[in-house]
């Protein structure tokens, strides 16, 4: 996937769109290890560790893709650093989607107020 930095303010994506975008990033990070097409799709309930078998270093790559795609306001490293280890082990795609959508809304509100 090619990251294209937005040059104008795009509409804030809703959670369904964020899920679609993040799913595509996950598939690309997993590469050969990605679940085959038509297999159980990535859902809001998919866990990064147990279901997607992602290693922590895969999450680092995902973090870079998120920042490239959404901009620096989506700081996955900082978000994970704020969680307890149990929460990280149990982390679902849904929690990441909520975090991204929330960050984008906050950034848009801040931009509108400036």
């Amino acid at each position: 996937m090619k990251a294209v930095k937005a040059t104008q303010t795009p509409p804030i994506p809703d959670e369904a769109q964020v899920l679609a975008e993040i799913s595509e990033m996950i598939m690309s990070v997993l590469g050969d290890y990605a679940p085959p097409e038509g297999d159980a799709a990535i859902t809001l309930d998919s866990r990064f560790g147990d279901d997607l078998e992602m290693e922590s270093i895969d999450l680092v790559t995902l973090s870079g893709r998120l920042a490239e795609w959404y901009g620096p306001e989506v700081n996955f490293a900082e978000y994970l650093a704020s969680l307890e280890l149990d929460e990280i082990i149990e982390l679902t795609v849904g929690r990441l989607v909520s975090y991204v959508a929330r960050s984008l809304r906050t950034a848009a509100t801040a931009a509108a107020e400036r």
Partner: peptide, 16 residues
């Protein structure tokens, strides 16, 4: 191990 152990722990704390 990998850099992930610091990327999600001390790295962001130091940057902050």
């Amino acid at each position: 191990d990998s850099l992930a152990s610091f990327y999600f722990t001390l790295g962001p704390q130091f940057a902050e």
